[in-house]
Amino acid sequence: MLQLEGVTVRYGDAIWALQDVNLEVAENKITALLGANGAGKTTVIRVIAGLVRPVAGVVRWEGEILSGPVEERSRQGLAVVPEGRQLWPGLTVAEHLTLAVYPVLGPRQRFRSRLPEAYQARIEQLLDQFPALRRHWRHRAETMSGGEQQMLALARALATNPKLLALDEPSVGLAPLVVEELFGRLESTVRAGMTVLLVEQNAEAALDVADWAYVLQSGRVVASGSRRDLDASGALEEAYLGRSSQAL
């Protein structure tokens, strides 16, 4: 469904954030992208979102090369939950979910005070899925707990009913039980027909739900496979701890 083909990203003249990265996110599956801090995971998300332009390589979306701006990618069915949730302090839960569909609204619709019916119905669905957000509907996002804020970030990304959801380190700063709930929700979104790219440092939790995983080290994909493959190869240990092991 989504392929990165030879993607290379450079920050400035010296720093190679990604080097010849090839990976595929299969439809209706959870694909995990694992790696230690600084491995280049967030850059992959930024490339997919259209925030960073690779110096080489392409991103294919349903067979076509992705090159448009962020809002075009939203309209094509891509959604991102950024690292650290990146909510809008001072804005209420209602305003967050309203703005979630901003990229797919027409210019006239943006100057109205209410969303079109179809989007309102979608937000109602999300509030049924995330009852805490209904309770906090009129509250500013920053007044909610970390777990609730992550749910808001997830609901905000789901509002446009995307085909692919890319999440950047969603478990950071959350209690294990909340992570379990969050990843459970990801599994149910996949059952409902969505595709997920899960970028995680917490390999253990991610592999519990992922169908396939890629391991990134210093901007390169060093291994890929199912949980069993990765466990057998020791590639994860090498990526996280720098121990040597045979590549897959």
């Binding site: 962020v70 809002e71 939203s74 950024p82 990146q86 809008w88 979630a100």
Partner: peptide, 8 residues
């Protein structure tokens, strides 16, 4: 940064 992700 986050606003940019949502097409603003």
């Amino acid at each position: 940064a986050s606003a940019r992700l949502f097409g603003m």
